[in-house]
Simulated scan of single mutants.
Amino acid sequence: MQFSFDSSEPIYRQIADQIEETIVTGGFEEEEQIPSTTEISKEFHINPATVLKGMNMVVSKGLLEKRRGLGMFVTVGAREKILEEKRGAFYTDYVKSLVNEAKSLNISEEELIAQVRRGFAE
């Protein structure tokens, strides 16, 4: 995990994002225990309350579960939930913008698809 203390994005949000990214990339497997709040706060010199706030964001999405006395564990299906959310964001953040830009440049749907195929081929 790496955090940017100079970023405008709050540290707790960076923690949540990093945990999710680690789940997606397979760094944390389903039903695997993740490092504790204390471990993360000590390793990265972050207030434990900030770490907990980030972890709770991931818990509220159903990607982590708290097991009393044991810690936090990745839920079954967490990776697929994150990927589904990212696919939705990809459409909203990139595809819609791409289509709007193509329309403004008078690029037809067929031409745009051809360009996307070209991008995949390169």
Rank of each mutant, 00 (worst) to 15 (best):
G26I: 07
I23F: 11
A78H: 11
L112Q: 03
G62S: 11
A78D: 09
I40A: 09
M57V: 03
R87M: 12
S97W: 03
R79C: 01
N56E: 11
Q2H: 13
V58H: 00
A78K: 10
I11D: 14
R118A: 08
G54K: 06
Y94V: 07
E122W: 00
I46S: 10
G71A: 04
P10I: 13
F44H: 14
N47P: 08
G71F: 01
G69N: 05
F90C: 11
Y12C: 07
E31K: 12
G77D: 15
H45S: 15
Y91Q: 12
E84Y: 07
R87D: 09
E9W: 02
M55T: 11
S97I: 02
I15P: 06
Y12A: 02
E84W: 02
R79D: 06
I15S: 00
K53A: 13
K96Q: 10
E21G: 14
N47E: 13
T25R: 04
T22M: 07
V99K: 03
V76A: 09
S41E: 01
E39G: 04
E39S: 04
T75D: 10
S104M: 05
G27A: 04
N47S: 15
V74E: 03
T37K: 00
D6S: 15
E9Q: 06
A114N: 09
K96M: 15
A121E: 10
E43R: 09
R67E: 04
F3V: 08
A102F: 02
K42L: 01
S97V: 00
M1C: 00
V76G: 00
G71C: 05
A102C: 06
T22D: 10
V24P: 03
R87F: 06
F3P: 05
S97C: 01
E30T: 03
E122Q: 00
I46D: 06
I34W: 02
P10T: 12
E111M: 11
P35S: 02
S7P: 12
Y91W: 11
S4T: 15
